[in-house]
Nucleic acid binder design. Structure first.
Lengths: 239, 239
DNA sequence: CGGCTCATGTAAAAGCCGTTCACATGAGCT
DNA sequence: AGCTCATGTGAACGGCTTTTACATGAGCCG
């Protein structure tokens, strides 16, 4: 029996022992449930079994708790994007699309973090730590764009990597915000958010001159290996 | 001296005369100032010079006021998009891009409406009237995409208009959300949000096979007339 | 072990907000 | 003139945020 030294039992005595962490977890659950706006400091305290004033020993105010969550969110986000990018393996275009999908997956699987990070209205640029975490996450997208830009087909002007990164970011964020959430503000879609974004990115990359129809950028990585399943095109099979 | 029969003078007697409208205006200002989350029912009442209970004669609760504002927002949004689209004049691609810019302009110029419509977390799909207004606004983008899809270059499979519309919407929304606001959550950009979106849409359209470098789709409208200023490409002059 | 100290938690209170209800007012109609 | 009902008021309830004074006990020092 693993007796985690945690929020088990209300008779934990006067001192909680791990309140800060418990509050963060409680808040995460509450935000996922009722949105960043509906989340309540007092509720988190109640859920942790402490008085409404206790949280103030660990967070200056409600906003700082939110910031902490956003901070963690950006860190997890960065980790997820890093993993998705996987340093561009097996090939740059494939990895690039995986990053886009990871963005969506994060929005869908971690609505609380996503909400705190992008929809809570907290001033990201006012908090240097938060800002830095945000920049690091975006840095992954930017690094991926850098690699992709370097593979621009010869003869065409090379697209600025920063611009590409911003474009990919805005596409991912737009799709995630409009269609990628569990049930809030959902709209009827003829396709999944994932497919929508994938097609969008593919069309965009094609617009930059990247070959995307068959094996993408075969000269990119080691030229051997089994060819991935060739997609029929950016929007399924044209009938 | 135009004595508008409005919120002039506090001595308006027991009855305000135009409270509903005054509340909407007050709320609009407050939301623009402090965000949809920070906006307060009591504050709106105070600003209109009535007691905190008065608004309940005109709105079931705070959320209904927010809904009303979102409703109006979608209507103005639709009007703006309609005007920008201008039935595809002078040519489809130009008008299409104008729609994208109008989206951005709306987000920038009407932050309160935009906030209520997209960032307030209100359940759009739970309110049929609101939903309908939202659909009508999106309908403009969809109609524009329809016209554009019909012009797809021969020989290539014709892209589904709905998909194009969703793509354009997500791009516009993504750029607007991330970079297009006054000062909240602003990020440093190497270019304006407008230019960023324009380049994004151009690259996307090119990816669909539309000619966008010189005179866009010259065969689209009346073939004569002065050629518009030819853009150097989607991302300025390659140096 | 005894005692000190300080981080951590509590209780109470002030001020705000949303919401409701009984009541007041007066605009508009007959 | 008088009636009626939409519209506004005041007071009250419960909940939230935040502050302040006080309580507790974990960890350290001798």
């Amino acid at each position: 029996m693993s007796w985690r030294k945690e929020t088990r039992r209300a008779e934990r005595g006067y001192h909680h022992g791990n309140l800060k962490e418990a509050l963060l977890q409680a808040a995460l659950g509450l935000i996922a449930e009722k949105g960043a706006a509906g989340f309540t400091f007092a509720d988190a305290a109640r859920m942790a079994g402490v008085s409404p004033a206790a949280p103030y020993r660990h967070f200056r105010d409600r906003e700082e708790l939110l910031s902490s969550i956003a901070q963690r969110g950006f860190e997890q986000f960065e980790a997820l994007l890093t993993q998705a990018w996987d340093d561009g393996r097996p090939d740059t275009v494939t990895a690039f699309e995986r990053v886009g999908k990871a963005y969506l997956a994060f929005a869908r699987n971690e609505p609380a973090f996503y909400s705190a990070m992008f929809e809570s209205g907290l001033p990201v640029d006012a908090n240097p730590t938060l800002m830095a975490a945000s920049e690091r996450a975006f840095g992954i997208i930017r690094a991926a764009a850098e690699r992709l830009a370097a593979l621009a087909p010869p003869g065409t002007p090379r697209p600025p990597a920063m611009m590409m990164a911003l474009h990919i970011w805005s596409m991912s964020h737009g799709v995630a915000s409009l269609f990628g959430r569990g049930d809030a503000a959902r709209r009827k879609l003829p396709m999944s958010a994932e497919d929508l974004l994938e097609a969008e990115v593919l069309i965009y990359l094609r617009g930059l001159g990247f070959p995307t129809d068959r094996r993408p950028a075969a000269a990119d990585q080691k030229p051997s290996g089994p060819p991935p399943v060739p997609p029929a095109g950016p929007w399924g099979t044209p009938k």
